[in-house]
Design a protein around this nucleic acid. Structure first.
Length: 519
RNA sequence: GCGGCUAUAGUUUAGUGGUAAAACUCCACUCUUCCAAAGUGGUCUCGUCAGUUCGAUUCUGACUAGCCGCUCCA
């Protein structure tokens, strides 16, 4: 990798998501999925330019992460894996938090954190009767709160008899007829709570002809488990030794409750993940920091400006129990600073889980100590779609341009790094009714096309063609003009997208520029 | 999943209970010697499904989608 080659965007008005979405559609980057049927929430299609841009992001990552490193290998695992993978990983249990809504206050509670108890009163004749219900949120003294609430309930309703001790249960244990009688903690009145509903974020499907419980399988909610499950295969066949990484790019699926912010959170998305395995005694925090720095440098290499990037270290008390530390690289989107790339130190949790669940040890042998151990792992995980959105947001600019007559107009430009720009060069004959210009332009176009994504355009005035390319982020336009034909040297006009400056270059100089900038 | 607002051409918008428009874009042709030139012509539209009505893009309802706020993001 080298340093960023794209200049930082000029100070312009804040990017509006509406304008960005409009451009994405107008120029064929992103369409809503199934649009002619009214759209489908949480799913997106990538158009001709979007597919190119996305592929370039993927290819750059793969080249830098896998091909240009000696310590990382790539794999591609199946989207549907054995259901036990997701039991071992904790996703089946972790995804099933049932939630309860209060229809009046619009508050939402986790059912396992909302407790209730029947208020049972024993009358003078010794008959116990349930006279109502009380509820309380989970706290250090849930039972005590319920007891106090029950006493208050009995006093308010002026019920005679002896109050029995409360029996705290959480809402997941409530019967349907009980839910109607349990008061909402928000309003204190019964009748507004919904039954607990499980929001399992994994998409389910069935494998094979049978659709009974035994055939249930899941679309993967992350690609990472593929690397863990294939760990031994790679170790045994890949001639790798610690420390080393296994990387994968692929689609993942999560049944998000609220997909939002364009492609930022969608239900089908593409991940680029890498599991970097290290010795159990290695200094994980040093490796962790190295990977964070690597990820930041990589983001800059594809044109994301430093000014939009920041770090967020997850507070220790909020980490998942198996995590030793997680740092997110954040990006300043128009809708807020949001997570772009998570770099997690996961210890040996995943491999240990799979070793236990499968009964197959996931260990490597240490020649130095003659001992076996389960490696620890550092995991940088990033979404392709989030990077895609980030480069659009960072690159999009509406500039005021003044022509020689003094008229000011708006130029919409997408400042994409040459590394990822969907079109690297546009080849333009100055005039399309001059055969000599067209012929030279076609020849150059054909030659460039063998190595690069290039675009040929002879329609409309030259200025309009430049602006079209500005909007889709093409870094350079090459114009074949009369000087090309009439003057010695066979030079073209090379027009730079960001500066709008023009200079003359030869074919060799053009190829040298591309060789240097597009990698 | 809840609430509020919204839905007319590729984009941004006007408009109407009686066969729907503007600007820009896009395409073709003419023209054009470097930054969205001009002329002519052209393609494309009332989110979906019902209801009311002689007739619905317009009124009503449901649905779907979008934005905003909650919630959620293991």
């Amino acid at each position: 990798m080298s340093d960023a080659t794209t200049p930082a965007p000029a100070a312009t008005a804040p990017v509006s998501m509406d304008n960005l979405v409009a451009l994405a559609k107008r120029r064929g980057f992103i369409f809503q999925s199934s649009e002619i049927y009214g759209g489908f929430n949480g799913f997106f299609d990538y158009g001709p330019l979007g597919a190119e841009l996305k592929k370039n992001i993927r290819d750059c990552w793969w080249a830098d992460m896998v091909q240009r490193r000696d310590d990382v290998v790539g794999i591609e695992t199946s989207i549907i894996m054995h259901p036990k993978v997701w039991e071992a990983s904790g996703h089946v249990a972790g995804f099933s938090d049932p939630l309860v809504d209060c229809k009046v206050s619009k508050q939402r509670y986790r059912a396992d954190q909302l407790f209730f108890s029947p208020v049972v009163v024993t009358a003078a004749d010794g008959v116990a009767q349930t006279v109502g219900y009380v509820s309380a949120l989970e706290s250090e003294n849930t039972a005590g709160e319920l007891q106090t609430a029950a006493e208050s309930f009995k006093r308010k309703k002026a019920i005679q008899g002896t109050l029995c001790p409360v029996v705290a249960k959480d809402l997941t244990e409530a019967r349907e007829d009980e839910i109607a009688l349990i008061p909402s903690p928000a309003t204190g009145e019964p009748g507004s709570l919904t039954a607990p509903r499980a929001f399992n974020m994994m998409f389910q499907t069935n494998v094979g002809a049978m659709t009974d419980g035994s055939s249930v399988a899941y679309l993967r909610p992350e690609t990472a488990q593929g690397m863990f499950v294939d760990f031994k295969n790679v170790v045994d066949t890949g001639r790798v030794k610690l420390p080393f990484g296994i990387a994968q790019i692929g689609k993942s699926f999560r049944n998000e409750i609220t997909p939002r912010n364009f492609i930022f959170r969608s239900r089908e998305f593409e991940q680029m993940e890498m599991e970097y395995f290290i010795h159990e005694d290695a200094d994980w925090s040093k490796v962790h920091e190295e990977w964070i720095a690597w990820c930041e440098a990589w983001l800059k290499s594809i044109g994301l400006p430093d000014s939009h990037l920041s770090r967020y270290a997850h507070p220790k008390e909020k980490l998942a129990f198996y995590s030793r530390g997680t740092v997110d690289i954040m990006f300043k989107y128009p809708f807020g600073v949001q997570e772009l790339w998570g770099i997690a130190a996961r210890g040996s949790y995943d491999l240990t889980q799979h070793a236990n669940a499968s009964g197959k040890p996931q260990e490597v042998f240490d020649e130095a100590t003659k001992k076996k151990f389960v490696p620890h792992v550092i995991e940088p995980a990033v979404g392709v779609d989030r990077i895609f959105l980030a480069v659009l947001c960072a690159g999009y600019a509406e500039e005021a341009v003044t022509d020689e007559k003094g008229n000011t107009e708006t130029r919409t430009v997408l400042r994409l790094s040459p590394r990822i720009a969907p079109v690297k060069v546009a080849v333009l004959p100055l005039l399309k009714n001059k055969e000599v210009l067209v012929a030279r332009a076609q020849a150059l176009y054909k030659k460039l096309q063998r190595r690069y994504a290039v675009f040929y355009d002879e329609t409309a005035a030259i200025g309009r063609r430049y602006r079209r390319q500005d909007e889709i982020g093409t870094p350079w336009c090459v114009t074949i003009d009369f000087d090309t034909i009439e003057k010695p040297g066979d030079t073209f006009t090379l027009r730079d997208r960001d500066t709008m400056q023009q200079r003359r270059v030869t074919e060799a100089e053009l190829f040298a520029l591309l060789e240097e900038q597009v990698y």
